[in-house]
């Protein structure tokens, strides 16, 4: 028995939260071959960090889940992020079992999957973003999505759709051999996480494989907005700064412009902000105009927190 068929047959047996999500085989077939023709301009992470450095400011990287709450709205939200001053974008592909994520991102994943998001559509989403911006785009995924498509194919599709870098939340250096190779082959950055509990020795191992920037996890925990920023975050950023020249971007739990200013002052190059924006999406599902206006406003505030006069 082919399991593929098995799952198709089981469609409709569950309610929406049961994880029987759209099968992207069709999307995948349809998308083949139309990507190479794209003539896209992509700014590198290093150029972007250099640009910020010249202006003596930090970078602001918003995170959203592709297709949340649906493909079109999500794309419009990305436009607002770019208009609102994002220096780069972090785009999540939804996963049924996101163990590193708190309830906010989990809900976004479910909304997106229920609206029919698939991996193939995810790449299409990136291509659509590339029609209006060249700022760096990082993908945030769980490794099973990469593995299932085939590591090489996934990275090739990422390159062709205009992705800069890939971070797999559940892929520590121990297991990252294939991914790092595929990233190199396709000229993409493989991005890794580091946290307070990461020892200096381990940090060295991570840095050897990491390129683009190092994703510094600001809290011990899962993603989600926190009202307070731990004092240890500042220390941790300092420690990591002393170990690497790689740009450092701090994420997980950042919810206020003050947090952004704080981590940049501590030596980080930028901040990644997700849950607070996704909360805005979740709270304004009924009214697109308000949603877009609020997203743009949030972005403006947070970008402002990275500016020269704030961080000096």
């Amino acid at each position: 028995m082919n399991s593929e068929e098995d799952y198709k047959n089981s469609k409709g047996n569950y309610n929406n939260s049961k994880g029987n999500y759209k099968n992207s085989e069709e999307d995948y077939e349809n998308s083949k071959g139309n990507s190479d023709s794209l003539n896209i301009r992509v700014e590198s992470y290093s150029a972007m960090f250099q640009r910020a450095k010249e202006k003596s400011e930090g970078v602001f990287i918003p995170f959203i889940v592709a297709g949340d709450p649906d493909f079109e709205t999500s794309l419009q939200i990305v436009r607002e992020l770019v208009e609102g001053g994002a220096d780069a974008l972090e785009i999540g592909f939804p996963f049924s079992d996101p163990v590193a994520d708190g309830p906010t991102v989990q809900s976004a994943d479910i909304r997106s999957l229920n609206a029919g998001m698939t991996t193939a559509k995810g790449f299409e989403f990136i291509r659509k973003i590339r029609e209006f911006t060249s700022i760096p785009i990082g993908l945030l995924v769980y490794y099973n999505l990469i593995y299932k498509m085939g590591v090489d194919t996934f990275y090739e599709n990422a390159r062709k759709s205009g992705v800069n870098g890939i971070l797999a939340a559940d892929l520590p250096p121990e297991e990252a051999g294939d991914a790092v190779k595929a990233a190199e082959k396709n000229g993409l950055n493989q991005i890794f996480l580091a946290a307070e509990t990461t020892s200096n020795e381990r940090l060295q191992e991570i840095i050897k494989l990491c390129s683009g920037f190092l994703y510094v996890v600001s809290v011990m925990g899962v993603t989600g907005a926190r009202s307070e920023m731990g004092t240890s975050t500042v220390e941790m950023v300092g420690r990591m700064r002393s170990h690497t020249k790689l740009p450092l971007c701090v994420g997980f739990g950042i919810s206020k412009p003050e947090h952004i200013t704080e981590v940049i002052k501590a030596g980080a190059n930028g901040a990644i902000v997700g849950s607070i924006l996704i909360d805005v999406i979740a709270e304004n599902l009924g009214d697109q105009d308000i949603l877009k206006a609020k997203i743009r406003e949030s972005c403006r505030e947070m970008k402002e927190a990275t500016l020269k006069d704030q961080i000096e």
Binding site: M1, S3, Y14, G19, N23, D97, V99, T118, T119, N144
Partner: peptide
């Protein structure tokens, strides 16, 4: 093991029940 395919769930690489994309099914 009878109808699943190789994939990653809950920290290890093994057989899993999943769809074409690698979303875990019930």
């Amino acid at each position: 093991l009878s109808v699943g395919t190789e994939g990653i769930l809950h920290g290890s690489f093994s057989y899993v029940l999943q769809n074409f994309d690698g979303q875990i099914t019930e």
